[in-house]
Amino acid sequence: MRELWEIFVSFFKMSAVTFGGGYAMLPILQREIVETKKWMTEERIIDYYAVSQGLPGIIAVNVAIFIGKERKGIPGGIAGALGIVGPCLFIITFIAAFLSNFQDNPIVRNAFAGIAVCVSALILNSVIGLWKKGVVDKTGITVFAIVFIGMMATGLSPIVLIVASAIFGIVSRKLAGGALK
């Protein structure tokens, strides 16, 4: 029970200080789960992140469920999910109750503008971290270029791009005679 509470509190704290959704949460997840708690490796978190992007729902919730489930099974997954959505529920309820009174306030507008800049920096940090871990050879650069162009030019579903990239990665490693990691 103590570890379930620890899972809940860890994700609750991360969610309470993360603005900008799942992408902005990656550096915080990495620091808390990998460096501080030492619950798993950075590669494992990135794997969970990649799979979560292809699943329905919110990326951060999916990742919290995966991590919690790995730690303590289904109850751990539930604890992670509840921890990650808890602060959002409180904040959204508070904002919904009082936003009409504050939405035109210049201080509130300026605060949200500042938060948007901060979130952009956090997302860029996540992109750089993912690039360093994921794009490690010519095959990675090729997949990145094809997926990027595919997204920009065709508007293909991310699910299609993720599945196609996975298949390409498996096939290209097999053809190259490399071992699948």
Rank of each mutant, 00 (worst) to 15 (best):
F112S: 10
K72S: 12
A81W: 06
I128C: 11
K13R: 14
M1L: 03
W5H: 11
V160N: 11
A111Y: 08
S52V: 00
M1C: 05
G77L: 00
Q53H: 08
A166E: 00
V143Q: 04
M1D: 07
V63P: 03
L82P: 05
M1P: 10
E42S: 11
L26R: 10
I78S: 09
M1W: 00
V17P: 04
I7Q: 07
R109Q: 15
V147R: 06
I58S: 10
R2I: 07
F12A: 15
P56S: 01
N101E: 11
P75Q: 07
L130M: 13
C118R: 09
V9T: 13
W5C: 11
A145R: 11
I115C: 07
K13E: 06
V119C: 03
I170Y: 09
S100L: 12
S120R: 09
P75D: 03
G86K: 00
I170L: 07
M152R: 13
A113N: 12
V160T: 14
L26C: 06
M40I: 08
G57A: 00
S10G: 07
V163W: 03
V9M: 09
L130C: 06
V9E: 01
V17C: 08
E3N: 05
E42Q: 11
P158M: 13
K181Q: 08
E3S: 07
M40P: 05
A60F: 05
A166H: 00
L122P: 13
G86Y: 00
I65L: 04
R31M: 01
M152D: 03
W131C: 10
R71M: 03
E70S: 12
V136P: 02
L55P: 01
I78H: 09
A145D: 08
Y49R: 02
A24K: 06
N110A: 15
S100K: 15
T18V: 14
I33V: 14
I46N: 13
I146S: 14
G86M: 12
I159Q: 12
S172Q: 09
